[in-house]
Amino acid sequence: MADVTTFLGLEKPIGGEAHSRAMINRNYDRVEAFAILADKMAKGKVFEKSVTGNSGTVVDDVVDNIPSFTFKANRRYEIIWDTSYYGTGNSDSLFYLSVNTAPLADAANLLTNLTAIEGRTRALNWYSLQGTHHYGPIVVPYAPGASDVTTQIKFRCQRVTGDDGMIFVGNANEKRFYKIIDLGAQI
């Protein structure tokens, strides 16, 4: 009689698979089904970078970028940007943070040709010198559709009102980081 593995339900003929007359092709069907399922599952983190230097004083600038990343067709992703920050003065200032796609050919600091993913994703209000803040990561979903999409990703801070600049923190103890997570097949 055949043993059955607990995970895939594969049959293991006593005589050995290759030469067993009892062997029929169900195993291959099961392996194939599992391979297809595994291919659709989340692959987890597919890109990560951490930064250990502060930004300069940002008014409307690209703070960080990923020069090129290929999002594979028919999959879902999350792009995450996590940073602490502090303002340079004590005026009442409002900033928007966003994650954008941009053409590969564009210089990293260009602010044209940007397409904000999920719009302006976070507003930061700064009104006095209060030390460093942390608001939690910004997370935007991205699904490339039926074809692979290779794009530049730009993480932007944009002042909307006020007179202050914003400095994005990075040091050995408090890294600024961005990463891309594969969530699995697009549904």
């Binding site: 230097g53 300069g56 690209v62 970028n65 990293a108 530049q152």
Partner: peptide, 30 residues
Amino acid sequence: MEEFVERFQWIDPQTNELFWLTQAEIDAKD
């Protein structure tokens, strides 16, 4: 708060990656 040193955008010409460097660090690359 750490001592404030202004940093500037510097783009790696090989990789098009953005860095924020001090003026001294930028001068050292030129």
